[in-house]
């Protein structure tokens, strides 16, 4: 009886030491969770999640907020976040299921009064212009966050869908005979 106990105790000790050693020896130096989450977010900085930017939302997720509050990221981002956080993917908060179309802001330049409001609103400094000078959007930098549309006093900013060109064509052969039968 005593022997058995001793053996068990020794075994436990031995395995414990082994595990402890392994934990130290094979320690994985990973990115902090917030960084990982932030890397998955689309960085539109649009604030539609209720946080002022993507990183604050990443921090919020790390602290237990829902993962489905990012409309620009859409399903794909939710899925990635679910994988990372080890939770179930959920439908987008607010429930819009329409496929997200990438958009960029476009300033109708002859209507622009040069008020700089959109410049101040842009989270990524993608609008150039000076006071009373016409503004314009640097399309390649625009994240399509929508934040400049509201402040414009003359409503001269449109969100236009990014055009499909040969470089971002996704091999959508519309009439192709790919019908799933199984």
């Amino acid at each position: 009886m005593i022997t058995a106990l001793i053996i068990l105790a020794l075994l436990a000790l031995g395995f414990g030491l082994l595990l402890g050693y392994a934990a130290l020896r094979f320690k994985v130096e990973g990115d902090p969770l917030v960084e990982q989450i932030d890397a998955l977010l689309p960085q539109t900085q649009c604030g539609q999640c209720g946080y002022p930017g993507c990183r604050p939302y990443a921090e919020a997720i790390a602290n237990g907020d829902e993962i489905n509050k990012c409309p620009p990221g859409g399903e794909a981002t939710i899925k990635n976040l679910a994988d990372l956080m080890g939770v179930e993917a959920k439908p987008l908060h607010g429930g819009s299921t329409e496929p997200e179309v990438k958009k960029v802001a476009f300033i109708r330049e002859d209507e622009c009064i040069g008020c700089t409001k959109c410049i101040q609103a842009c989270p990524v400094d993608a609008i150039v212009g000076a006071t009373r000078q016409m503004h314009t959007v640097i399309t390649s930098e625009c994240t399509g966050c929508d934040l400049c549309v509201e402040p414009c006093p003359v409503d001269c900013i449109d969100m236009v869908p990014i055009k499909t060109g040969i470089t971002n064509w996704r091999w959508d052969l519309n009439p192709i005979a790919i019908k799933q039968v199984d």
């Binding site: 932030d38 960085q43 930017g53 990524v124």
Partner: peptide
């Protein structure tokens, strides 16, 4: 491409902040 773009957006956002 989007990843690159979002990285750039993050940089720009952080720079702006």
């Amino acid at each position: 491409q989007e990843k690159q773009k979002s990285d750039k957006a993050r940089q720009r956002f952080e720079a702006r902040n």
